[in-house]
Amino acid sequence: MSESLLTLLDWRRRLNDLYAEVRRLRRGDPQAAHAHWQEVRNELFARHPQTPLTPEARAAFTALPVWPYDPAYAFCARVQTDLPTEQFVVQTSAGHDMPLTRVGRVALRNEHHDLGTLDAYWIAVYGGGLFVPFRDGGSGRSSYGGGRYLLDTVKSADLGNSPGGELLLDFNFAYHPSCYYDPQWSCPLAPPQNHLNAEVRAGERSAEQHA
């Protein structure tokens, strides 16, 4: 048990280091940041004791399937906070309750796309963290039906802010929760208000789909 917790600590430290480097690289070269993100995550999934892959999947693993980097799916969004604070209890993939507090809403609009809005949540458990999950028009086909994560500061998945204070929300770094790989994990699922109509062909995708 103690050894498992120490390897989990190492996993989290490595993710923290990864996203710190991604933020640094992304300021000058988003595509290089994306390539580094893929490289390190592939290494962690293949070799780390805390990989979410099952032993069978790990034996056959080569790389996580990811769409090529597309700058059209990168957004800067100011968090709209003049909304009523709402408490939610969402279901996890294992049927557990997860308390969330809505802290605002972000509009996903740039010169290429207008995808709509997503609510941003604070995970209302010890320590807390900002959390933006989503489902899109391809969920259940080109990606996991339970949705993907765009931002989850509990797991260090955070691209930071623009110089103007806007959240950097880049779908090229969207990823599947651990329960996508192994149902033993319990992951909060994207609530109905975080469903996008369009298919977002950026970030991590299902292995059955081809770019």
Rank of each mutant, 00 (worst) to 15 (best):
H112D: 11
G160T: 05
T117A: 14
R141P: 03
L196K: 04
V154I: 13
D152R: 05
G104T: 05
R109H: 14
L167R: 06
R109D: 12
Y181R: 06
N194R: 06
L168I: 12
D152V: 03
P191R: 11
Y175M: 07
H96Q: 15
Y175H: 10
D97S: 14
R141G: 04
V125W: 12
G145R: 11
L168N: 08
T92G: 13
S139R: 10
H112M: 06
F134T: 01
D170Y: 06
E166M: 02
W185H: 14
S143Q: 13
G137N: 10
V132M: 01
R135L: 13
L196A: 00
N110C: 10
V103K: 01
S162Q: 00
S139I: 11
A198G: 07
F88V: 01
L169Y: 07
N197Y: 12
G104Q: 01
A107I: 07
P183D: 02
D152L: 08
E166T: 04
L151K: 15
R109V: 15
C179R: 05
W185F: 15
D152T: 02
A157M: 15
S142F: 13
W122P: 01
G164I: 07
G165W: 13
Y126G: 12
E199I: 04
Q193C: 13
D152W: 01
D182Y: 10
F134N: 01
G128K: 09
S142R: 13
L118F: 04
D97C: 07
Y149R: 14
R102D: 00
Q184H: 14
L189I: 01
S93I: 09
G104K: 04
G128V: 10
F134D: 08
A198R: 13
D119M: 09
A94G: 15
Y181S: 02
R105M: 03
V90H: 12
V106P: 05
V154R: 15
F134M: 06
E166L: 06
E199S: 04
G140C: 10
R141Y: 12
V89R: 14
Y181T: 01
V154G: 09
L159G: 02
V132T: 02
D182W: 11
C179K: 00
L159R: 02
T101S: 12
A124N: 13
Y181I: 01
G164S: 13
L189Y: 09
G138I: 04
D152Y: 01
P188G: 09
P163L: 04
P188T: 11
P177Y: 04
E199K: 08
Q184F: 10
L189F: 06
Q87K: 13
F173Q: 05
F131L: 03
Y144F: 12
L115V: 00
G145A: 09
A174H: 02
E166C: 06
G95P: 13
N110I: 12
V89F: 08
V106S: 00
D152Q: 01
Y180S: 09
P183E: 06
Q184G: 09
N110A: 03
I123Q: 15
Y149M: 00
L169H: 05
Y126A: 15
